[in-house]
Simulated assay, not measured.
Amino acid sequence: MTTPRVAEAGDPFPLQLAEALRGNGLRPGLAELTAAAEHVRAARDAFAAWLRDLVADDAMVADIAKRSYWHPNGFAKIVLHTGVEPDFRVRLHVWPSSDTPSRGESNPHSHRWEFASHVLTGTGMHMVEFTEAAEGGRPFRRYRYGTDPANPAALVADGEAGLKRRATRHVEGGGTYRCDTAIVHTVRPIDAGLTATVVIQGPHLTPTTVVYCEPGESDDQPNGELTPDDFAALVTAVLASLESEAAR
């Protein structure tokens, strides 16, 4: 059996994460995804250096912007890196400073993949986890995401459901959070300040996932275009926040 190569400090940052993800040599599971998120936490200076390299490369900025977008609730989902062996993505989620706290992802939803995230900068994140209730619960309309081959981002109606709160979690700045495909949750920053998380996403495990909308809420919630200028401005703001935190 071949001994896995150990990542070194001088490796490109995505390669460091790939080594943390290889683990038992199979597809990355929650343990490996969490190890990669913990590597981001432990190597924040190296991660910041990688961000500076990315934002200084015009071609890379344009490429990243093409595969990224603004969520309809006002935060940016930026795909910094996609890996094949192992299969993973590195995403940067950024909630810009606002006069009021961001709604974050206010529709209860699950994911087609497992992930672990690290709160890179900001006060932290608030998560509420839900479960469907056979009786009672708050009424929602259930939709399936990913079922329409012609429009994978479309929400396809899938009946009604009652949801009850299962757990409430707070992850403070610098902390990590892990999530599997069975969890239905909402996510929002704790306050209205700039908040950024680094999400280490594993491979797709299910073809579809669920999204719940309140009765009367529109299911037409298109993503917004994220431009290269948006990407540069967001990363510059995140880097400035990291430098300010380091100075304190």
Rank of each mutant, 00 (worst) to 15 (best):
K164R: 13
E135C: 12
L194D: 08
H126S: 12
M1Y: 07
F231K: 01
E217T: 01
L92M: 11
L21A: 13
G173E: 08
G146K: 01
G74I: 14
E245H: 13
D191L: 08
I190G: 00
P222E: 11
T186L: 09
P108Y: 02
D180P: 03
E243F: 04
G159F: 07
H81A: 04
L26I: 14
A116C: 12
A196N: 03
F130Q: 02
T2E: 10
G224V: 03
A240M: 05
R44T: 15
D230Y: 07
D229Y: 07
A37K: 03
Q16Y: 08
I78R: 03
D148Q: 08
G216S: 08
R44N: 12
A154T: 00
Y145N: 14
T176W: 07
F47E: 02
L54F: 14
P189Q: 10
T82R: 08
A133H: 07
G124Y: 13
S244C: 04
W70F: 00
A247H: 13
G124F: 09
T197A: 15
G25F: 14
E217N: 01
R89G: 02
G136H: 00
S244T: 06
G175F: 14
L205R: 08
E217P: 01
V171C: 14
T3R: 12
L92H: 05
V171F: 06
L194I: 07
G23H: 02
V184C: 04
V61H: 08
G136D: 01
K164G: 00
V6K: 06
P4K: 04
D53L: 11
V61W: 11
D191M: 02
L17M: 05
D180S: 11
T147V: 12
L80F: 09
V55F: 10
W95P: 00
S241I: 05
R103I: 13
D87I: 11
D57K: 06
A133M: 06
R144P: 07
F140C: 00
M1N: 08
T209F: 10
P72G: 15
G224Y: 02
A37Q: 05
A153H: 12
H185L: 03
L30K: 01
T100V: 09
T131R: 12
D99R: 09
P215I: 02
L26E: 14
N107Q: 15
P86S: 04
I183L: 06
L226D: 04
A31V: 15
E8L: 03
V6N: 00
G159L: 09
L15D: 10
P149Y: 03
L80D: 04
E135I: 11
E214L: 05
G124M: 12
